[in-house]
């Protein structure tokens, strides 16, 4: 039988779990992050059918062949919101520490979308199809945190 389930007799201990992985980005995502860090630009990757996937992938989803850095092409730093959600309370490790929108953003010249935060000020300022542009932090390190967030264009 289960022991008496009262909160008073339960011992508690805080436990912090960490898996301190070190990951290599590989040539393709490596180039994606390097372009953001060094030039404040985004690059995608062109598939065998001519689609541009951004963020780039290692394997062509259309042909299932390996892609290479030679297939990478520049896309815009602005794009269109294809879907979004207003988060009324930001979570601890989000890009912004105030209410903001998560959005899928299809950058100009790309056929797929990137997931990131949009700092729009209020939910009323958000809409599907709106144009947004990327903002970057000053001291960039070559990872996703180099993108500060997206903001409405104009």
């Amino acid at each position: 039988m289960a022991p008496d389930q009262t909160q008073e007799v339960a011992l508690r201990a805080d436990h912090k779990l960490e898996f301190p992985y070190v990951r290599a980005t590989g040539p393709i995502l490596g180039r994606f992050f390097t372009e953001i860090r060094d030039n404040g630009k985004f690059v995608g990757i062109k598939t065998s059918t001519g689609r541009v996937i951004c963020p780039p992938v290692d394997v062509d989803p259309d042909s299932l062949e390996d892609l290479s850095v030679e297939d990478m092409v520049e896309v815009g730093t602005s794009g269109v919101v294809t879907t979004w959600s207003w988060l009324s309370e930001a979570r601890p490790k989000n890009p912004l520490d105030k209410p903001f929108a998560w959005a899928l953003i299809q950058l100009d010249g790309a056929d797929t979308a990137l997931l990131h935060a949009v700092d729009a000020g209020s939910e009323e300022a958000m809409s599907t199809g709106m144009r947004v542009k990327a903002t970057f932090i000053d001291e960039r390190k070559g990872n996703i945190h180099d993108i500060a967030c997206f903001v409405p264009e104009d």
Binding site: K93, N94, L115, H116, I144
Partner: peptide
């Protein structure tokens, strides 16, 4: 793990 998990959507 590179693009999404670090910003915790």
């Amino acid at each position: 793990p590179y693009l999404e998990a670090p910003i915790q959507p």
